[in-house]
Simulated scan of single mutants.
Amino acid sequence: MPTLLPSIIIDKQPLHYIDKGCGPVVVFCHGLLANSHMWQAQIDALSTQYRCIAIDFWGHGQSQTLPASCNNLQDVANHVLQLLDALAINDVALVGHGSGGAIAAEMALLAPARIHGLVMLNSFVGFEPQVNCIKYQGFMAQVANAQAVPVALAASLTELFFSKDANESSQHNIALAQAIKAFEQQLIAINAQQIEPLLKFANMAIFKRDTLESVEALTLPTLVAVGLNGYLRTALESYLMHDCIDGSQLLHIEQAGHLANIEKADLFNQHLIDFLSKVNFN
């Protein structure tokens, strides 16, 4: 049984999070179907210099419910700001993955004076392409029908989250093989209580609003990173966001997919540490 993470109550529901380290605060926002533990390699690398807060979003990890008033990613962004208020934290840098990057962007738009740096890994803040929406809805329909993540679907989803040659590479990379297995088991372990909140969160993530034009107003240091060998996001999307956010940095990670921070943890950590060292947290 995993250790129960700390939480705050929002609209009668507990939002759980990891809180480790001390120093300037870095908040980690996972994407759809992941959880706070996807950031373990980053927390291990940063927590001697930074206070790392990694959230389990609604329907994910230990946050297995969802407030009745939560209807979109803007609401979720507000919930993270409430968490920071509860912890008496005013100034942060954000690291977002997938839909977590869209939540991080919403936070930067809602509270620009509090957000001093933004990292978006395999995220896209524009409308989700229709072909993706249809595909993702199909996956979620399987989950809804089974009231679980079927084993075959868990295997298919796991394949999509890693690089296109990850299964081959894992034959001689024990750490990668363990990461692939752990992600698949995490999906299979999603329980019946989580399904309804997870599906609602998925719907909010898939049909998120387009903030590409809005983020043009952001002036904070930003790093846009993408794995070049993945299935779920494209290099073109990273170029679009890089072009929209004035002064942003662009990082393309070779031989990595959606979970590039796991597949290429050392490389991603090196760039993340370098980026954060230039962020003015005051």
Rank of each mutant, 00 (worst) to 15 (best):
S248M: 06
N269F: 13
A179W: 06
D246Q: 15
V279Q: 05
Y50K: 03
F124N: 09
I195H: 13
N173M: 01
I9R: 01
E184I: 03
T48E: 08
F124I: 01
L46C: 07
F139N: 05
I134S: 10
I253P: 10
T211P: 01
L160T: 11
I10V: 09
V151S: 06
P67E: 10
M107Y: 08
I53M: 12
L236Y: 07
K135C: 05
E254S: 08
L81H: 11
C29V: 15
Q186W: 11
N282F: 01
N261F: 15
N35P: 05
A152E: 15
N35W: 11
Y231R: 13
S163R: 01
F28L: 13
G98Q: 01
M204G: 09
P14L: 03
T211H: 11
E196T: 14
A54L: 07
Q186H: 12
M38G: 04
A235T: 09
L94A: 13
Q137Y: 08
K12A: 14
I190M: 03
K200S: 12
A88M: 10
Q186Y: 15
L109C: 03
T3F: 06
L251K: 04
D91Q: 15
N35G: 02
H37G: 07
N132T: 05
A189Q: 14
L232G: 02
I262H: 00
P67T: 05
A179C: 11
L199N: 11
C133H: 00
Q270E: 12
D246M: 13
L250E: 10
H37P: 00
G96M: 13
D266F: 08
P24R: 09
E263V: 03
G247P: 07
L276K: 06
I55P: 02
T158E: 08
M107R: 02
L187M: 08
N145R: 09
R114L: 03
I10G: 02
I190R: 08
Q194K: 10
Q49Y: 06
H79Q: 15
D44F: 06
V119R: 12
I115S: 02
L198Y: 10
I10W: 10
N72A: 05
Q64A: 10
L236T: 13
I115Y: 01
G138E: 08
L240C: 03
A155E: 13
H16A: 11
L240N: 00
M204C: 15
D75E: 07
I253D: 05
M140C: 11
F275S: 06
S170F: 01
M140A: 07
Q178R: 15
L198V: 09
L81T: 06
Q137A: 10
N132M: 08
Q185L: 14
H37T: 14
F201E: 00
K20P: 04
A108L: 04
N282R: 07
H271W: 06
A102G: 02
N191S: 12
Q270I: 03
L212N: 04
N203R: 07
G117L: 09
L232C: 12
I190Q: 02
F124D: 12
H60F: 05
H271A: 11
A144Y: 04
L66W: 05
M241L: 13
I174C: 02
V143S: 14
L83H: 04
P24V: 09
A77C: 07
C133W: 00
H252D: 07
